[in-house]
Write a protein that binds this DNA or RNA. Structure first.
Lengths: 329, 329
DNA sequence: TTGAAAGCGCTAACAG
DNA sequence: CTGTTAGCGCTTTCAA
């Protein structure tokens, strides 16, 4: 049954001529052990290559040191950096990440969270398909932090894209643009309404016009198609829903002889690594994914310590101004 | 210390009026328990909401049910699908994935693997920075499967890109192209030599010419720059190292008035989701990442059962022929 | 400041 | 087929 003949606390204790409990204390509550003893134990443990068993510790403390992270997919470039950030932040707390990918299925999502919830200390959920009531229920049983989703007063880390989109508008209007276009995402996207509201607000304040094109699917093709509409709308600047849309716009406008940015400025509400090296480089919103990951782990750690999680953290995207946007005319 | 008042086996045993061990057996070795007893136990366990403690089981069996997965980054679109596939395959074996991201640092990679190796049942390593001797050492202590890397005779799942690149050449040459260009990756990329060898082989067999451009950095910019060279090389078809390179080529050739595919056919040795919806859609190699993930988990499972892992699995990429390649002229 | 002892919840001999 | 009995390796009272 046993296979690994790894060094246990008992072994260290024997060699050091002390009780197991003293060895344990030397690591967990160093202050409770006389300095010389402690150092000797540590040295011996080290020499013997002692590695405390997480499993045994987990059984006795009731905590595994594992955090569950649930994301909908890794194909969307939104989630890679988030996962990476969460993993790194967890590492700093000496915790590990158990990753689950729901593949955009609500049923799967629910099932995975259900299972995970009984095997980790806490959960970070960055998915949108499972129901609110379900999440509320899970949060009762286990510390839970939501990312980019709001469910009642559950602890959460939010990314305020509307304010980022507004920042794009400010930048554009500030540069002198008077007619802007927003190309919206797929029909029913919950992200669009607040963005459009924010844009309208900015437009009204400054007396600029706002044209909304779409909704269209978030694909390059759809972006290419919609570029005709955009070209005819008589706008001098366009903001695209996401990177695929913008890629399509760039291409579509190009083939219609509309130059970017000379004729029309283009910005993306979504970052995409290649946008920094396209010609022209595209003005984008950099989503604070790293920050979000760290914040989520921090919040979860607080919950696990029994502290109050604090208010939802709201992170603003950063506007990266590049060649694709400039004053009109 | 205790916090969750979850139902334990002892509880179930008491209610069912049997010994703990019988409850245990009812789940682990169902055949060793009389059918009626077994069913009664299961029903009661179910009603009580019993969930066996993985931790306790781990302590007693020495196996945690966790698999470690180490990848270099999630920014490269190569790894997202791989991670997803590994997670899914693991799930089917009722195992969970502990994910580590080395962020392309050899030192970090070594450290992570070192730590992970004492906390999971087995390891899947899809990184290239840590040293061969180190991996050999780790593999002695814990079942280990390599992905897209070969170290001695360690179990591994390989993706045979050279044969895929050769398939592109066959396709092109078969269509009548006589002068091909391969745009290679970054200086020192270990991937290039075998690809170029494969291409040369095909070219010689068929009496076609092969021009190698580069090495260049795997970026859009570099792709744009190199497109001048390509345009002047008098080739009718070009194969790019990866998606960024090809994106650059597409753009660069376009601005030089070289039409794709009318004047030059273009193919990518690397898939990229947007290539199916660009104009023209690009002929690519689809890397069998899902298959690789499944194969790796399967192989690891075999190792964990004490079976021989079998020979390295070699997976061939699939050639997806699209609009960007066609007969010359 | 240290030791002894009692678990944590489960699995796996070994009896019966 | 089922019960009894030891642990797995660690943390944590409780005493000394």
């Amino acid at each position: 049954m046993r296979q690994q003949k790894s060094v246990s606390m008992a072994d260290v204790a024997r060699v050091a001529g002390v009780a197991k409990s003293t060895v344990s204390r030397a690591f967990i509550h160093p202050t409770l052990v006389a300095a010389p003893t402690r150092e000797r134990i540590r040295r011996i443990a080290d020499e013997m290559g002692f590695r405390p068993s997480r499993v045994a510790r987990a059984l006795s403390t009731g905590r595994t040191g594992l955090l569950g992270l649930v994301v909908p997919t890794l194909s969307n470039p939104f989630f890679g950096p988030l996962v990476a950030a969460v993993q790194q932040a967890a590492e700093e707390e000496d915790r590990q990440i158990v990753l689950m990918i729901s593949e955009l299925s609500a049923e799967r999502e629910t099932r995975l969270i259900e299972r995970l919830s009984s095997e980790v200390d806490g959960l970070i959920v960055a998915t949108s398909l499972c129901g609110d009531p379900f999440l509320r229920k899970v949060a009762k049983r286990i510390p839970l932090v939501l990312v980019d989703r709001r469910v009642g007063r559950l602890p959460s880390v939010l990314i305020d894209t509307p304010s980022g989109v507004a920042a794009i508008a400010d930048h554009l209007i500030g540069a002198g643009h008077r007619r802007l276009c927003y190309v919206s995402g797929p029909p029913g996207s919950w992200a669009d309404a607040p963005r459009i509201a924010a844009l309208r607000g900015r437009a009204e304040e400054s007396g600029a016009d706002l044209v909304v094109a779409g909704p269209i699917p978030p694909t390059v093709d759809a972006g290419i198609e919609v570029s005709e509409t955009v070209a005819k709308a008589g706008v001098t600047a366009v903001i695209g829903y996401n990177s695929a849309t913008v890629l399509g716009l760039l291409h579509g406008l190009g083939t219609q002889g509309v130059r970017v940015p000379e004729d029309v400025s283009v910005a993306s509400a979504d970052d995409f690594i290649l946008f920094q090296s396209t010609k022209p480089a595209v003005t984008v919103l950099r989503l604070p994914l790293e920050e979000a990951g760290h914040a989520a782990v921090g919040m979860l750690a607080r919950l696990l310590r029994g502290e109050r999680p604090g208010k939802p953290v709201v992170l603003g995207p950063e506007l990266l101004i590049r060649e694709s946007t400039r004053p009109p005319g």
